[in-house]
Nucleic acid binder design. Structure first.
Length: 553
RNA sequence: GCGCCCAUAGCUCAGUUGGAUAGAGCGUUUGACUACGAAUCAAAAGGUCGCAGGUUCGAGUCCUGCUGGGCGCACCA
């Protein structure tokens, strides 16, 4: 709805500026807001005040000109008021609001989608955990946020691809191989020291056991390097398979899995280094190869190839992002743990160095998740292998609750995950509160059907919904498309979690104060239409978060 | 030492490009089921938006300084 009003306002302002009736100004900066106070109408514009300060005219005079034009231009407004210092307050006509219900039911699961993104190719890369162990809670938050953001961007009209980057090269993978080999030898009774910084989790033993089942004692006869490689390969596959299963359970499915090792196999890293050299963005110094990232705002140049000849982690990362750009993505969104924030300027510099505008790259930082049980923090430490896995949390509280809880905070704010609250099936738990609203509507619709009532009936009179609680509920669901766009524009998917909670609140309030099915047939049919639309929007919003909308619970 | 993020009700947190009287949940107090699901609703109380300046018609929001917390400052990954 807001978008429609914005269009109308824009049209009026453009015409007036063209005629010289009001000073010319960038229309994009003239805001339309939803006033906090209902007395100020459905929408309010500050256009007159902004223009007045430019033109040295009285805001209220300019507002009067705009008001007049809007009145001749359209009849969607029931009332236009000039208030306070020069706000133009707009009250949308009930008929206009009611017509939204038809749009919702017509569009169905597509209600809320828009062409805001104009088909721009966007990639969202998230989770991207090393295949050295199962996903833990922190990865879960990244998965929930990333997947929800991808869904939101798609709904907002972007051409979205989600991707998981598999860091299957490097020391940590070698350590994985060594750790598994050590456990494998133990299983064969061979004395073997466990690597100092090895992975100590019990899953390593499980993998070694599976490897023993699959290949017997074969690896004992190999030379060290060969055996480690075999272990590494086997373990990485097994762990990655587990990660895929966990994500599947979490309702997260990637369009693409991109392997770091493929970068090397396809010579992408060397190609990138040659490219940087060709455009003079790299240089040799102290027997190392450097990237001139300072040219793009980084605080110091960064090493690509170390003195010992090996590459830094930065090098394949640049090659990976070059590959992303080469694949035609106009916007590349990386979702990282907040502890990597120091890495952002350097990556952004690299993107610029590769010739893309710096706005093409966005890093969304995900803050820590801490678990609380019985009011006490749950201790976690990756190093010792004592961490709570995503799988354990899903098994304990369920996928839906888990996904919602991870969306409850701005991604760059720390999140306290209260396991006791998560398991409560009461109004304290927002997930049940929201799903209950959906189930309740389904229940009413079932009752109505049994009584032979259908909102499609010809004597359904939607004009009965133009006031009071009915109108309030329509307004709450009509803002859904605006919320989706706002989430997409600002890359803040958590807003959808707050919105859907408000939507549920609007329904529960309505339900407690009004009868849907009553003796008044016309009103009953209209309200059945109303709650059908409400149900649709609840389901659509929940779907953006990958959360189910149960028919009963 | 340098840089980034955060500071809003007793608690956990929203607050969209700067807008009018700063919101929600929990907790506290008091009410509502012989009609569609009480896993629900209504009402009350609760604030110097960390502190001090500045920008302007207007600041929780932008700028500067300070205080207090988190994180990062590798030829680690």
């Amino acid at each position: 709805m807001k978008e429609k009003i914005q269009e109308i306002l824009k049209e009026a302002l453009q015409a007036l500026m063209h005629e010289g009736a009001i000073p010319a100004h960038d229309i994009g900066s003239l805001g339309l807001s939803v006033p906090a106070n209902r007395e100020f109408g459905d929408f309010a514009s500050n256009a007159a005040m902004v223009l007045a300060s430019r033109a040295k005219r009285k805001p209220r005079d300019i507002a009067a000109v705009i008001k007049e034009r809007l009145e001749t231009l359209t009849d969607v407004f029931e009332r236009i008021d000039i208030a306070g210092p020069g706000f133009i307050n707009l009250v949308v006509s009930p008929g206009m609001w009611v017509s939204v219900l038809g749009e919702v039911l017509q569009a169905g699961s597509a209600f809320g989608t828009s062409s805001f993104g104009a088909g721009l190719k966007v990639q969202v890369e998230f989770v991207s955990a090393n295949p050295t162990g199962p996903l833990h809670v922190g990865h879960g938050r990244g998965a929930a946020v990333g997947d929800t953001l991808a869904r939101i961007l798609k709904a907002a009209g972007y051409d979205v691809q989600s991707e998981y980057y598999i860091n299957d090269v490097g020391n940590q993978m070698n350590m994985l191989g060594l750790s598994v080999l050590s456990r494998y030898r133990e299983l064969h009774g061979a004395e073997t020291p466990f690597p100092e910084n090895g992975y100590k989790g019990s899953y390593i033993g499980d993998i070694a056991g599976a490897l023993k089942d699959a290949r017997g004692s074969e690896l004992l006869d190999m030379d060290e390097a060969e055996a480690v490689a075999a272990c590494r390969h086997y373990a990485a596959n097994a762990i990655l398979e587990g990660i895929r299963e966990d994500l599947e359970l979490f309702n997260v499915r990637f369009h693409n899995w991109f392997s770091e090792s493929a970068l090397y196999e396809d010579d992408k890293v060397e190609e990138m280094l040659a490219y940087l050299k060709s455009i003079d963005l790299s240089y040799e110094e102290n027997d190392a190869l450097w990237f001139r990232t300072t040219r793009f705002g980084d605080e110091k140049d960064r090493v690509l190839r170390k003195q010992d000849g090996s590459l830094t982690y930065f090098a394949p990362d640049i090659a990976y992002h070059k590959d992303k750009l080469d694949r035609g993505f106009g916007k590349v969104i990386d979702i990282w743990g907040a502890d990597h924030h120091g890495y952002v300027p350097r990556m952004r510099a690299a993107i610029e160095g590769l010739g893309a505008p710096k706005e093409a790259f966005h890093a969304l930082l995900i803050q820590l998740v801490s678990l609380v049980r019985n009011g006490q923090p749950v201790q976690m430490s990756t190093r010792s292998g004592e961490f709570v896995t995503l799988r354990e949390i899903i098994d304990e509280v369920g996928k839906d609750v888990c996904r919602y809880f991870f969306m409850m905070r701005k991604s760059d704010a720390q999140l306290v995950f209260d396991l006791d609250l998560a398991k409560k099936k009461s109004d304290e738990n927002p997930v049940y509160y929201i799903q209950y609203a959906h189930a309740r509507i389904c229940s009413i619709l079932r009752n109505a059907r049994e009584q032979g009532l259908s909102p499609d009936a010809p004597d359904c009179d939607l004009s009965r919904l133009g006031s009071g609680d009915d109108l309030e509920m329509i307004k709450s669901l009509a803002s859904y498309p605006d919320v989706v766009v706002s989430c997409a524009a600002d890359l803040e998917p958590h807003r959808i979690a707050y919105y859907v909670l408000e939507l549920a609140t609007a329904f529960h309030r309505f339900y407690n104060r009004n009868r849907v099915i009553s003796d008044d047939r016309g009103l009953t049919l209209a309200r059945l239409t109303l709650i059908s639309a409400e149900k649709q929007v609840l389901a659509n919003a929940l779907d953006l978060m990958g959360i189910s909308a149960p028919e009963s619970m």
